[in-house]
Design a protein around this nucleic acid. Structure first.
Lengths: 334, 334
DNA sequence: TTGAAAGCGATACCAT
DNA sequence: ATGGTATCGCTTTCAA
């Protein structure tokens, strides 16, 4: 492997000078610069990011912790982050936390030992205090998908309550009154917020939520399948079901059809997230848009500015969901 | 940041000894080991992976180049690789090549400058020669999704031709004779192979493929939509369509329905890949299973053994696709 | 504008 | 079993 020494020797200049032209952060005469560049080209020199990292105590990498590396939601997130960072020659280290506190902490330690310059975290299980403490440890962090009191300026979140409200309101406005709900895991804050919004919409219509129409799911397709089957076998009547996310909505659709129902005639369904494939299930899914890409980009820009540019950057802390109307909801006459 | 120096001082031992207990690769008395461990705990020591990398000329990271970071197919791949590697405290650096030769080369250079210990590559646009040359550069590589003559033992691929054959045969056995094909980009080898298999199945039935029933798509949902619309407006009759992958199949389904068709009665559809959501489109998609997870794990094991363990490991070079029967194909009587 | 030299935080060889 | 020390490839004062 050719090093900076080889280049300096070949160009007949010092190590320092070679370093300067690499980072072109100091004045170097055009003539020497040309010599150095030529030497690099001749030798096929490639800078060693590891050595650079050690010397500058900057790894030029940012750690990204998300729940899973697969799935349409996280896919968007990773894609947005990697694209933006790599433009700046920074690499992203992705790690999965699997929605489990121990695994999330593990992943954080892993990323920290990698000496990431910053961390972008979408964590679900770890406590607020953990994050507050982590923040004090020196590595800048930005938190996606949570609101933490003592970390406000570094949090980027969607107004989930409002999202849940919009979905329910959409169903209510279409004339539905018996509305079931297949939620994500109840311990997750997102789940709770969306459900709270759902309740608020019902309350606005002087309806109280029938708790027996609430099924706890897992944010996966299978959870939607199981959820709908449970609802069906409960015998309780319902004309619509709101789902905690699109995956479960897709599962619920499949289960409904397996049970012999026609959609949306026999059952109206709304999802949440607006993942790519929600447009390609049948019927096309009405859902709440979660602007993941924008939020991920916001997080990345914060890191870029705050950490690498040393310039302040005000984050847009709360994103607003909007309803995406498609064909999975039937208007019923009252 | 606390370093190995601090630990050695606190424990009253030398640097070397601290290093030994960290890597426990040399004999250290239980007593000193305990002292060192205690000192580490007291100080909250975290090894600096960067420094370790420089000193050992092992970054403990492997570069993974795939076409996109989103999408169900690559999601599975990343997930499988990351899980396996992190068990061994190795991190994966994912980079997107976007199916473009220049961008793929760019990404390779990026990963190389990161001093990855090995590269797992799913590249589509770059030439075979490029990969052969790359392989000579010292960093071990394993290639997914391609067969390269002079790189055979490091290639892991699916028998795409056989997959294309199976899909077409399935349609033929169900009685279909007028079969359209929405392919991926024609310059991609996967596309060509799958199409070749398709043709072989037709030939076995004494049918020749009607070229006007071939539409070039893009492996995305939208490509399936466009593809089906083109087929429809061509006026040519067809009772079934085979798609280059599941995403396009989902798009084709949506387009068919938008055109007023009932599925699978008016049109039978098969996909390719068996991505997670293919089970949740309607009707449930008949498709060809692509064992991505297994293939990714195979690649990872190769790297683990060959690079980190210095023990030989024979790769299973070719995986066999199987047909997954579901409900998107109608049996027609002859 | 350029050079000399002291780190950065580990590893690993050579002694003891 | 333990310690001393050169080394990895680059950055970054400090001088010149």
């Amino acid at each position: 492997m050719v090093t900076i020494y080889d280049v300096s020797e070949r160009a007949g200049v010092s190590l320092a000078t070679v370093s300067r032209v690499m980072n072109n952060n100091a004045r170097v005469s055009d003539k020497t610069k040309a010599k150095v560049l030529q030497a690099m080209a001749d030798l096929g020199y490639r800078p060693n990011a590891i050595a650079k990292g050690l010397a500058s105590s900057r790894s030029n990498s940012v750690g990204v912790l998300i729940s899973e590396l697969h799935g349409p939601f996280y896919g968007m997130m990773m894609s947005a982050i990697e694209t933006e960072l790599r433009k700046h020659d920074i690499h992203s280290i992705f790690a999965a936390g699997h929605s489990d506190a121990a695994k999330e902490e593990d992943a954080v330690n892993f990323l920290l030992s990698r000496r990431c310059d910053a961390l972008i975290l979408y964590v679900e299980a770890v406590s607020d205090e953990f994050l507050v403490e982590l923040n004090k440890r020196g590595t800048p962090i930005v938190v996606l998908g949570r609101d933490i009191k003592n970390l406000q300026p570094q949090c980027i979140n969607l107004d989930n309550e409002q999202g849940g409200y919009l979905a329910a309101k959409y169903l209510l406005d279409a004339g539905h009154r018996d509305i079931a709900y297949i939620s994500g895991p109840l311990w997750k804050v997102d789940t709770q917020d969306r459900l709270a919004g759902h309740r608020r919409a019902l309350a606005e219509h002087q309806l109280t939520f029938d708790e027996s129409l609430l099924i706890e799911g897992d944010f996966q397709e299978e959870g939607g399948v199981d959820g709908l089957n449970k609802l069906l076998s409960s015998g309780r009547p319902f004309t619509a079901v709101a789902c905690g996310n699109d995956e479960m909505a897709a599962g619920a659709m499949a289960a409904a059809r397996d049970a012999g129902m026609t959609l949306p005639d026999d059952l109206s369904i709304v999802g949440f997230d607006n993942v790519a494939y929600s447009r390609f299930v049948y019927p096309k899914l009405c859902t709440v848009n979660y602007p993941v890409r924008e939020m991920a980009e916001m997080a990345t820009h914060w890191v870029l500015r705050q950490v690498y540019d040393h310039t302040r950057f005000e984050i847009e802390n709360t994103f607003t969901p909007v309803m995406v109307e498609r064909n999975s909801v039937l208007r019923v006459q009252k």
